[in-house]
Design a protein around this nucleic acid. Structure first.
Lengths: 128, 128, 128, 128
DNA sequence: GTGGTCTAGACCACG
DNA sequence: GTGGTCTAGACCACT
């Protein structure tokens, strides 16, 4: 379900967060779906339970999942909590970060845009 | 010249690195230009000289600047040290990171591409 | 594992870098191997942890090792980051430096070549 | 006569030392030749007189030149002051340094030897 | 005064 | 306990 790559530069909890975010965004995980328990997922991924807990906590704060006491953790109904301004601000920040990391690599703007377009292609369904 | 934002998630030395990278990439800083001294910039930004030294050291390793003992730090002639494979790998990594960050913000692919295009527009120089 | 010589002209962090570079190049350290922790190696070599951290940071920038937060530092899969031009430039620089150093020692070219050949012999692996 | 490259990683005084060493080794400068005065060379190279003085001092310590009070600085008769063991030790040190810097560049031993041979070729006359 | 190295000690993020 | 960042302050090499 979730792939943990030891060679990845991202911390483990972030890889879990990113994994679920992508699955929700692509529709692999539908609202209402029950996620594995903290301990269960930790065992399955052979990581520390605290790490999974941290990932779930981050996803909850983000509003992507919610935990129902004694029942489990579930994918939320999609609802855009953030204001347009906030979302726009985050997009711009992320793009500026991309540009600063890529600017010295010597690519043409078109190459960069093409690469992004290819990466975005499989996500067409998530335009809520 | 360089802006340090305490609320920024990036560490201070990274903000310095990014600042100079952008200035070199946009041509604001031309090859041969002398950068401020470590102690001078540290005082100006009110950070520790070691922090500036670390930023300069990173830029030196990247091949963007070079330092001469007792003289100062200077912008290098542009030279691409990295192989195409390595550059491509870094581009792809950066783009994947962008996508996982913005995927939950609910933007259309076109909006994201447009935003990137606008950010890339002023950087046409030096992209050869 | 790593030898620090106080009489050496190279700074301590460079001796650490060189030591690990040789061990990786000769295959004594295989990809995936965990390096000693910064604090542990610092204690063992009786140097400051920051000095070891600086060496590890340099090796990371070089792409020889990678570090994972809270886990440790590991030897990378070998991967050539640099372009042929850059590698060739560095080789020529290093050779010119060698020549200017030994030129006044009064050796025959053949003696110098023989000495280099002997030093290169045990390193046949990983030279692909 | 001597070339000072501002982009060179070597300090200025070292470039001067290396320059004279090469000229003596190749026979461009013969024993007994008078070198320019400290101030004269400093003016010609547009560097600080202290820098030239330091270079001359290093060359004197090396036994390559000698200053005759009130007359000037002259190239010495070649005489090998160092013991074979010392010369050999220095050669080995220099070669080990070359190897550690080049080992990660991924060249075949033959390529390295060829490069050294080419660099050594023009110096055949100096095998005293 | 310039950069380069090193030490000592602190705080944070991650597992 | 692991690495990452930052501060403070010292000493050295070079110009």
């Amino acid at each position: 379900m979730i792939q943990i790559t030891t060679g990845d530069s991202r911390p483990v909890f972030q890889q879990i967060v990113d994994g679920f975010r992508m699955q929700v965004a692509t529709g692999e995980l539908l609202p209402g779906t029950k996620l594995p328990s903290t301990r269960g997922l930790a065992m399955q991924l052979t990581v520390n339970p605290n790490t999974v807990a941290k990932a779930y906590s981050a996803l909850t704060a983000e509003g992507l999942i919610e935990s129902r006491q004694g029942v489990g953790v579930f994918v939320c109904e999609p609802r855009q909590q953030l204001s347009y301004e906030e979302r726009r601000r985050r997009l711009d920040t992320a793009i500026q970060q991309l540009v600063t990391t890529v600017i010295t690599l010597g690519f043409e703007p078109d190459e960069i845009l093409d690469a992004l377009e290819k990466e975005l292609a499989p996500l067409l369904r998530k335009s809520s």
